[in-house]
Amino acid sequence: MPLRYRGMRHPVAQLRDEMERLLTGFLGQPAAGLWSAEGRGQPAVNLWEQADALTAELEVPGVNSGHIDISVAGGELSIRIERPDLLQEGATYHRRERPVGSFTRTLRLPFEVDGNNVQAELNNGVLTITLPKAEEAKPRKIKVAAASQATQ
């Protein structure tokens, strides 16, 4: 079922993204969460572009703002989430599906952003990060000068 949403992007582009994600994790920095025992996977991200900003959204239930670390540097957005382990001593777990530990996700930004004005909001377990485009990355309207008089 979730494939339907991913289908919005061309399959080749998806494959490229996936490969890039794998390789940067593998060769660049240690991919905490994906390979290490530290975490159990990377949090899914929805990322969309508007005329003047880029918005990243993640579902991070069970954490408060103190458990989230966001940084923008070198054209990358890095999000680290710490899910506290509230293991109940002496209690019996019948089901344990909610992951605990730290989860990291790094995204390469498609354009320059205004790093000083990045805003993050946490609302009912949904983290929304708004990254305004840098001036030079904003769409520009180019005026077409009409040479009306010359053709007359």
Partner: peptide, 15 residues
């Protein structure tokens, strides 16, 4: 649904 209808999605990993 809180997804933006007008926006262009670069990643859409969850519904």
């Amino acid at each position: 649904d809180r997804r933006e209808p007008e926006a262009e999605y670069l990643l859409c990993e969850y519904g």
